[in-house]
Design a protein around this nucleic acid. Structure first.
Length: 501
RNA sequence: GGGCCCGUAGCUCAGCCGGUAGAGCAGCGGACUUUUAAUCCGUUGGUCGGAGGUUCGAUUCCUCCCGGGCUCACCA
């Protein structure tokens, strides 16, 4: 138990007094007729009418025998006017035992105050939940239609650890998550309209695959078996394409046991889509249409602002082959460069080449350092080196490349896609190359999946695949600088508890 | 993991060259029946993140630890 401070003790006393007044501080339900927002929006027709609204008490201005207070529900904030001669002695005694943070319901008459604020003259007040822990009090006023906050609840650690408080006190946080939900709904609708099937595949996997990353490991007690939390669902979705589904997608929580920063949380959400008989050119069109139509639907525009950058998501997006991008931003043509030449080029660009890096890795580094951050407007980077992409099909015109693209927006990739490799012999060779990397100590190299190869041996149609990072897309569309601002409960170290255990 | 910065009341923050803490808001008591960052008067509240060290004396200086933020590295 943490030390009970004075504020909690006072609130518990008030709780006791409420009970003595015959009030149930935790009743079962409250019928409301309107939300706070509806009261404001429908004021014309509701004026002088009786309504019932409920919400959390956010501010209190007591003036002897009358008081103004503000309640907030999910939609808006509304002022209540409580007069002793309206609610009665008993009602006013109850009111005086309320604290900021309590949840109440009221019945009363809609009116406008002398200063023009839509309010409710309370006739009857019901306690719905007595709060015994003090809420940070955020003072705010509306100035020229903008919300001005005086004592913001701004400590990021507290906001992330106690997201419930963050949501109560900072309404704009709620807006971000509402948009996140709308983004997912819009994406799902877009995919369903095209006839693709939403499916579910295993999170606990005996062999992890579909991406280059280190996994989380767990154990199944009964089977006495090591299981991995999925790092991607790609290989399972492709098995479904083998099975005869022609368009499948999944919103997948993936888990990667890696560092955390502004763009990375150990668990994150990705939407993966696989469509039979299509290639990556087709998928590029789908991707630009998907993202621009989500923006249109959720934000009402395809022109967005992200961290000060004006970004136009209107299709078509620029398509820039990886090596042309490098040429454009470094002046170096590395298209046919050998590994030695790549090393020399990298050093000239002040990139320290680690000795275990292959040519793919070096190219990726140069790209990541010199090209990607410059790509503010939506750009498809296309045609990656073969060795970086063990699951992608060889480029139809250049066997050193694969047919792969990443949509880059605001200098960050928001997805990954390719013409899927469906040649089982080629796939086996690629896995074997990965296993060799693994043997050399690359812990992120991919693992050979015999069952997946067996599936490919039965035959998979030509297929286009796409993964979209939902968290990053949400950051982009809500203009949030950190992934932690678009995940309700981002990963944190455990809180230090007061007592030793 | 490296670098920089932060941790003081429920919240937001001051606290100088070392003398065991202060403000605003919230809370509590009082005045006030159209206020709105309500106002006015009074007032409670602190293991100064933790453990050591230096010192007569540490919130302040030093070391280590814990937690966090930003940033670089790796990754979506």
């Amino acid at each position: 138990m943490e030390p009970i401070n004075q504020l909690v003790a006072q609130r518990k006393q008030k709780l006791q007094k409420l009970i003595e007044l015959g009030v149930n501080p935790y009743p079962y339900k409250f019928e409301r007729t309107h939300t706070t927002k509806e009261v404001k929006e429908q004021f014309e027709s509701l004026e002088n009418q009786t309504v019932r609204v409920a919400g959390r008490l956010m501010a209190n201005r007591l003036m002897g025998k009358a008081a103004f207070c503000d309640i907030r529900d999910m939609y808006d904030r509304l002022q209540l006017f409580i007069k002793k001669n309206e609610v009665g002695e008993h009602g006013f005694d109850i009111y005086k035992l309320l604290d900021i943070g309590d949840i109440i319901g009221v019945e009363g008459i809609v009116f406008k105050t002398r200063t023009g604020e839509i309010s409710i003259l309370v006739k009857e007040l019901t306690v719905l939940c007595k709060s015994i822990r003090p809420l940070p009090v955020v003072k705010e006023k509306i100035e020229d239609g903008k919300r001005v906050v005086y004592d913001p609840f701004s400590d990021k650690e507290l906001r992330y650890r106690q997201r419930y408080v963050d949501l109560i006190v900072n309404p704009e946080v709620k807006e971000v998550f509402i948009k996140r939900s709308k983004i997912i709904t819009a994406m799902r609708n877009f995919l369903n309209e095209r006839g693709y099937l939403e499916v579910e595949t295993p999170i606990l996997q005996p062999i992890y695959g579909g991406a280059s990353a280190r996994p989380f490991v767990t154990t199944h007690n009964t089977l006495k078996m090591k299981l991995y939390l999925r790092i991607a669902n790609e290989l399972y979705l492709k098995r479904l394409i083998v099975g005869g589904f022609e368009g499948v997608y999944e919103f997948a929580k993936d888990f990667r046991n890696e560092g955390m920063d502004r763009f990375h949380n150990p668990e994150f959400t990705q939407m993966e889509l696989y469509v039979a008989y299509q290639d990556y050119y087709w998928m590029m069109e789908l991707t630009e249409n998907l993202i621009s139509s989500i923006a249109q639907e959720v934000l009402g525009t395809t022109k967005i602002t992200f961290q000060g950058h004006e970004i136009d998501l209107t299709p078509p997006w620029r398509r820039l082959p990886l090596f042309e991008g490098i040429k454009e931003y470094t002046g170096m043509d590395l298209t046919d460069a050998t590994e030695e030449e790549l090393k020399a080029a990298a050093e000239k660009l002040h990139i320290t080449v680690e000795k275990e890096w292959g040519s793919g890795k070096i190219i990726d580094e140069i790209f990541g350092e010199y090209v990607e951050p410059k790509l503010i407007q939506p750009t498809f980077i296309i045609d990656y080196p073969l060795e970086m992409s063990p699951l992608a099909k060889k480029h139809r015109d250049n066997p050193r490349l694969v047919e792969r693209f990443e949509p880059i927006i605001a200098g960050k990739e928001v997805g990954n896609a390719f013409s899927e490799l469906n040649d089982p012999m080629d796939q086996r060779e690629r896995f074997e190359a990965q296993m060799e990397l693994r043997a050399r100590g690359d812990e992120e190299a991919q693992v050979l999946d015999e069952d997946f190869l067996r599936a490919l041996e039965y035959g998979m149609p030509p297929t286009a695949g796409l993964g979209i990072g939902i968290d990053r897309l949400t950051m982009l569309l809500t203009d949030q600088p950190s992934i932690r601002d678009v995940i309700f409960f981002p990963q944190m170290r455990p809180e230090q508890s007061g007592d030793e255990s």
